[in-house]
C-alpha cells in the first residue's frame, strides 16, 4: 500500500535555528537513503516555506486566489515522502524514524483508495 508521510514542523523555529545547513540536512539525506535501500521510496521532496504559498479556490466557477497557505497553523507542511509498504504498522515505523518526527509531526495518510 502507498502512504504519504506529510511532514509538519514549526517553520519559524527552523528558520531561527543556528545549526549549520549541512548538519541539519544530514539526517534527511540518511533517511532518504534508508527508504531507497529498503525499496519503499516512491517519491519525496521538501517544500519551500509557506511564505511562498498561494491558495486557489474555484468554487462555483469563480476563481479566487489568496496569498498564503490554506490554513494558519502552529506547525506547517514542510515536505513529504510517498512510500510503498505492506500496511499501516510499517508506515508508522518509517514515520517514527523520519527526522521531522523528532521535533514536529508526521501525518500518515494512505493514498487514495476507498
Amino acid at each position: 500500500m502507498q502512504y504519504m508521510l506529510l511532514i509538519y514542523g514549526n517553520e519559524a523555529a527552523m528558520a531561527a535555528s543556528t545549526v549549520p545547513q549541512a548538519e541539519a540536512y544530514a539526517p534527511w539525506i540518511a533517511y532518504t537513503k534508508a527508504l531507497k535501500d529498503a525499496g519503499v521510496m516512491v517519491a519525496g521532496d521538501a517544500l519551500a516555506p509557506t511564505a511562498t504559498a498561494t491558495t486557489v479556490r474555484n468554487h462555483g466557477g469563480k476563481r479566487q486566489v489568496q496569498d498564503g497557505p490554506f490554513a494558519e497553523t502552529k506547525e506547517q507542511l514542510g515536505g513529504y515522502y510517498l512510500i510503498d509498504v505492506a500496511g499501516l504498522d510499517a508506515a508508522l515505523d518509517w514515520a517514527a524514524k523520519c527526522p521531522g518526527a523528532a521535533y514536529g509531526s508526521i501525518e500518515v495518510r494512505p493514498v487514495g483508495m476507498m
Partner: peptide
C-alpha cells in the same frame, strides 16, 4: 480498512 491496519499479533 482504508488505512491498512494489519491483522497480526505485534
Amino acid at each position: 480498512r482504508a488505512a491498512g491496519i494489519g491483522f497480526h499479533v505485534p
